[in-house]
Computed example of a mutant assay.
Amino acid sequence: MMKLSGRERWLLFWEAIITIGILLLLDWSALTIIDQVVHTNESFQVGIFEIKSGLSFGPEDLRIWSYQWVGILIIGGVNLWVLIWRLVRRYRSFQMAHILSELHYIAAGHFKHHISYKLNNNLQKIIDSVNAMVDAQIRAREDELAIERSKDEMITNISHDLRTPLTSIIGYLGLVENEYEKLTPALIQKYTHTAYSKATQMKSLVEELFEFAQMQQLDLRLNFEKINLSEMLEQLAASFELEAQHKNLTLTTESWPDDIIVDADPDKMARLFMNLIQNALKYGTNATFIKLTSRLERNYVEVRVINDGEKIPAEAVEHLFDRFYRVEGSRSTKTGGTGLGLAIALGVVEGHNGSIYATSDDNTTEFVIQVPIIQRSMGKLNENETHTQSTPSA
Results as ranks from 00 to 15, higher is better:
44 F>D: 02
44 F>S: 10
46 V>G: 03
47 G>W: 12
48 I>R: 02
48 I>D: 02
49 F>C: 06
49 F>Q: 14
50 E>F: 04
51 I>H: 09
52 K>R: 07
52 K>Y: 00
53 S>R: 09
53 S>H: 08
53 S>C: 00
53 S>I: 00
54 G>F: 00
54 G>S: 10
54 G>Q: 09
55 L>D: 00
55 L>N: 02
55 L>Q: 00
55 L>R: 00
56 S>C: 01
56 S>K: 01
57 F>S: 02
57 F>L: 07
57 F>G: 02
57 F>Y: 09
57 F>Q: 02
58 G>V: 05
58 G>F: 02
58 G>E: 01
58 G>D: 03
58 G>I: 01
59 P>F: 10
59 P>D: 05
59 P>T: 11
59 P>I: 11
60 E>C: 01
60 E>I: 07
60 E>S: 10
60 E>K: 12
60 E>Q: 08
61 D>Y: 10
61 D>K: 14
62 L>S: 14
62 L>K: 09
62 L>D: 08
63 R>I: 04
65 W>V: 10
65 W>D: 10
67 Y>V: 13
68 Q>N: 12
68 Q>E: 14
69 W>N: 12
69 W>S: 11
69 W>K: 05
70 V>D: 01
70 V>T: 13
70 V>M: 13
71 G>L: 11
73 L>Q: 09
73 L>V: 14
74 I>P: 03
74 I>F: 12
75 I>E: 03
75 I>R: 05
76 G>I: 04
76 G>C: 06
76 G>Y: 06
77 G>E: 11
77 G>K: 07
78 V>F: 14
79 N>P: 09
79 N>A: 13
79 N>V: 12
80 L>N: 08
81 W>A: 13
82 V>P: 06
86 R>W: 03
87 L>M: 10
87 L>Y: 07
88 V>W: 06
88 V>S: 06
89 R>F: 12
89 R>Q: 09
89 R>P: 01
91 Y>W: 14
91 Y>H: 12
92 R>L: 10
92 R>T: 11
92 R>G: 08
93 S>W: 07
93 S>H: 13
93 S>I: 06
93 S>L: 08
93 S>D: 11
94 F>A: 08
94 F>K: 12
94 F>C: 07
94 F>E: 09
95 Q>Y: 04
95 Q>V: 08
95 Q>E: 15
96 M>G: 08
97 A>R: 08
97 A>I: 01
98 H>I: 00
98 H>P: 07
98 H>C: 01
98 H>S: 12
99 I>E: 01
99 I>Y: 00
99 I>D: 02
100 L>P: 03
100 L>M: 12
100 L>F: 05
100 L>C: 08
101 S>I: 04
101 S>R: 05
101 S>M: 05
102 E>C: 04
102 E>K: 11
102 E>F: 02
103 L>K: 04
103 L>M: 11
103 L>H: 02
104 H>W: 06
104 H>V: 05
104 H>P: 01
105 Y>A: 12
105 Y>R: 09
106 I>T: 07
106 I>P: 09
107 A>E: 13
108 A>P: 04
110 H>F: 08
